[in-house]
Design a protein around this nucleic acid. Structure first.
Lengths: 189, 189
DNA sequence: ACATAGAAAGGACATTTGTCCCAACTCAAT
DNA sequence: ATTGAGTTGGGACAAATGTCCTTTCTATGT
């Protein structure tokens, strides 16, 4: 539920600490601040060092759908920069977060000249496709009850970390349905 | 709905036709034949030259969920080879298809030594994430009726190309619900 | 201390979607 | 021509989920 990418984080940390890589900056965001805005130009990628952010898409009917919760090591903005299109989602800090930031140009250069970095990004993109595929197949094929049990299995403390509204938006259901299902599942209390 | 990747196809075609690239083979599949099997080892990537295939995941409860329909230039197997894990989905030919095939080792080598190929794969992966994100947000946030109208808009002939059961599995709904909604939408007749 | 906004909880009812049927039709194999 | 498997279409009902609304609780600023 909260995605992480330790090997990418470790590598970026190493690059940053080595001091030879001037392209990498550090920045901080407070809860509710946005790292990226849907439909706007993306000027740099961010790699989360600490904290949790949500990646969500606002639909034409006003509903928000949360694509993913990102934790340590997850990267945002790379898809847009690689394919040169406007930002697909909003990225918003849930907790206070610290990020490593790399401008679009520097990111593309790093991809070209650093084979290890290149491969880490290939892996990060593949991992995103992988977990999206599995998650959405599960969502579409199972009841809310089963989806909640699955969440609890791989992240037992999710109810204390993420707001109810966000969980509902992540599952693509209404808050009312979430509450109803939770109270049916006495398991959670 | 049927994804294609013309720039990748063009490039592979060029490599193949040049005759210098021995790693690329051609192969043919008939309808119902499978290119890749869920949970099995993936030994090579395939890039579709002609025809349509479906990419679907069989859930623990027996339901199939179609991730995507692939057409010309789409690549399959790359995610598993890059991240070295078993096959996420089944890939099955719907029409007769012809593919360019590259073994896992050759694919990884090509990624390393051919910068253009490398960038085309980065773009292909990004595109997959992009359309998955948009599609699933739309599915979760809209009624079946709206989803069907959207399908018809970007692929007017879908009802004659894809079976009803496959359309239902793509939308994550039952055949019954699909039929009901279609007959409400006289638009389609 | 008070007002206010947002999160959480849930009742009552409407709508959407699924389940379980059965029937008609097509197409290929015998 | 006849069987049988697969596809399509739809009736009747059950279950799941959404909509609308009210209440309570908590936190925060004035």
């Amino acid at each position: 539920m909260i995605r992480t990418n330790k090997e990418l984080l470790d590598y970026i940390k190493k690059l940053y600490d080595s001091g030879t890589e001037k392209a990498i900056l550090k920045q901080e965001f407070l809860p509710l601040q946005k790292l990226l805005l849907q439909d706007k130009r993306v000027s740099s990628v961010c790699i989360l060092q600490t904290g949790i952010a949500k990646c969500y898409l606002t639909e034409d009917n006003g509903k928000d759908f949360i694509e993913e919760f990102f934790g340590e090591g997850e990267i945002v903005g790379e898809i847009e920069i690689i394919n040169n299109h406007p930002c697909v989602c909003n990225i918003e800090a849930i907790t206070k977060i610290e990020v490593y930031k790399i401008s679009a140009d520097d990111f593309l250069q790093l991809l070209e000249r650093d084979k290890i970095f290149n491969h880490l990004i290939l892996r990060a993109l593949s991992a995103k496709i992988h977990y999206k595929a599995i998650r959405h197949a599960y969502h579409q094929s199972h009841l809310i009850e089963e989806n909640l049990q699955r969440l609890q299995k791989d992240f037992p403390d999710f109810l204390n970390t993420i707001s109810k509204q966000d969980i509902a938006n992540y599952l693509g259901i209404t808050l009312r349905s979430l509450n109803r299902t939770l109270s049916d599942l006495k398991v959670f209390y």
